[in-house]
Lab assay of single mutants.
Amino acid sequence: MQRVNMIMAESPGLITICLLGYLLSAECTVFLDHENANKILNRPKRYNSGKLEEFVQGNLERECMEEKCSFEEAREVFENTERTTEFWKQYVDGDQCESNPCLNGGSCKDDINSYECWCPFGFEGKNCELDVTCNIKNGRCEQFCKNSADNKVVCSCTEGYRLAENQKSCEPAVPFPCGRVSVSQTSKLTRAETVFPDVDYVNSTEAETILDNITQSTQSFNDFTRVVGGEDAKPGQFPWQVVLNGKVDAFCGGSIVNEKWIVTAAHCVETGVKITVVAGEHNIEETEHTEQKRNVIRIIPHHNYNAAINKYNHDIALLELDEPLVLNSYVTPICIADKEYTNIFLKFGSGYVSGWGRVFHKGRSALVLQYLRVPLVDRATCLRSTKFTIYNNMFCAGFHEGGRDSCQGDSGGPHVTEVEGTSFLTGIISWGEECAMKGKYGIYTKVSRYVNWIKEKTKLT
């Protein structure tokens, strides 16, 4: 034993070699072989497995989906700052455009905790909710729209109204504003409101030439003092309507412009014939205590009207009353817009006519005020429907199939267009061939041609 100890002390290297040989010859039971080890760690190889990531292109799944990435790591994937920024906006807080917040056709661009709407022409605001041009839906104005110097929408209202708090709607500024039905039992019968379409306001006024200088022999019209197929109006439903009495009662109609003036057809009036105007009328054979009678003290036909040349060209006249009318729910003026808007309103496509005229061709006159909704007829169809001249200051309205029309005794009465609950004068009943005849239409004086003249002559002093 002493000898062994001496050998170990003198030859430590020998001992180490012996131990190493023993270990190498022993069977290893701690580690699995290569094949079995792979069965336990069965993990798919990654895209760049075996390579240094710093030297390969980034992978979106590896960089940002398996674990949260930084902007720089995302930049490695896209290799483009702009594309990385677009991805980053949604990656950080989701897609803010998912709810489609942009209105009126706006395009949404996502941002971090926010979004941006790219608005089409005519709109602005956070969600493109603000109209900035009158060309689109009248700028959301209830009545009139004008573009300011910086191309912003400025709404306005006709006389007797003021802008509401929203700067879009119009509200009454006087007790009985024009064009409004205020009798409670008839307010439910107000005709369907007309909503502004998209309009090209630059070209809204037709490029028409008034044929002022045409000389033409007097034409022989049949029954051209021209509501057939209409309905009984309720008291106060058309408070701007008046009836004219002269040699015979209810020979023509008219509309209240203001307390002192009536507008009617020029062919209705004769110099030297006494005319009485009755406002607030409903049943011409009954006294309903809503009527107001006034005498006409002055007749002003349009300066281009000449019955000797043509009885229905420039067929418009103004009547001055001896005493002002007292405005109330049964006696209310009709609204008159400017030339541009009167023309736009007419193009809405349908209007209402009213009167006490004959209820059928050569038949009896109506006792109760009649009204009828009539569609506008395109000019080409209008011209083809008659052998008589249709001037540019006239328009056609009615039904091709016949059966409904204005008729004798309705002449001078109103053709009105309702705009968001307020009625505007767009025409004056003038003439036609018979009444409600198939293929024939009622012919009306186009008020847009005469609004400046009306307003100039009827100013209240």
Rank of each mutant, 00 (worst) to 15 (best):
N213K: 06
R364S: 14
N343L: 04
C252S: 00
T445M: 13
T81P: 15
K293T: 11
Y341G: 04
P177D: 00
T264P: 01
S217A: 07
C117Y: 01
S430Q: 06
N222L: 08
K89H: 11
H415S: 01
F78W: 07
H282V: 10
T190F: 07
N59H: 15
R43M: 14
L346Y: 05
S49Y: 08
K387E: 11
D110G: 05
G357W: 07
K311L: 08
V257I: 05
L367K: 14
A233F: 07
T422Q: 03
V353K: 04
K457T: 13
K446C: 04
S25A: 08
S99A: 06
N147S: 08
C145L: 00
H361S: 12
S255T: 13
A380F: 15
N38A: 11
N38E: 15
I284S: 08
E171W: 07
N151R: 10
K362R: 12
V183Q: 11
F424L: 01
E259I: 05
I299R: 06
R83Y: 09
G402Y: 13
R140W: 08
A279E: 00
T389I: 12
E72R: 15
C128Y: 00
N203Y: 09
P101W: 02
V92Y: 06
A37R: 02
W431K: 13
P239M: 01
C178S: 00
H400G: 14
C28I: 02
D198T: 08
A380V: 08
G442K: 07
C28H: 03
C396H: 02
V416F: 10
C178Q: 02
R191E: 13
T445C: 03
L23M: 11
C134Q: 02
S49V: 12
E288P: 06
V377S: 03
V183M: 10
I429E: 12
N283L: 09
C435Q: 03
S385P: 03
I344L: 13
C69M: 03
K311P: 11
A266Y: 02
L60T: 13
K126D: 14
D131Q: 15
F251M: 07
T81V: 14
F360G: 10
R358T: 14
K247A: 13
G351M: 02
N213P: 14
C268Q: 01
F55K: 15
N59T: 13
L23T: 03
Q219T: 10
N104W: 01
K459Q: 14
V359Y: 12
Q167N: 08
A207S: 13
A192G: 13
Y371F: 12
T417Y: 02
I112N: 07
G442F: 05
E10Y: 05
V92R: 12
G160L: 01
M437T: 14
T209R: 09
P120T: 08
S187Y: 10
A397H: 02
N203M: 11
V269F: 04
V181K: 07
N100Q: 11
A37L: 02
A9W: 14
S220R: 06
G50F: 12
S385A: 14
D93I: 05
A149W: 06
L23F: 13
D95V: 04
D338Q: 05
A436N: 15
S156Q: 08
V181T: 11
A265W: 02
T276D: 05
N59Y: 05
E159P: 06
I300T: 04
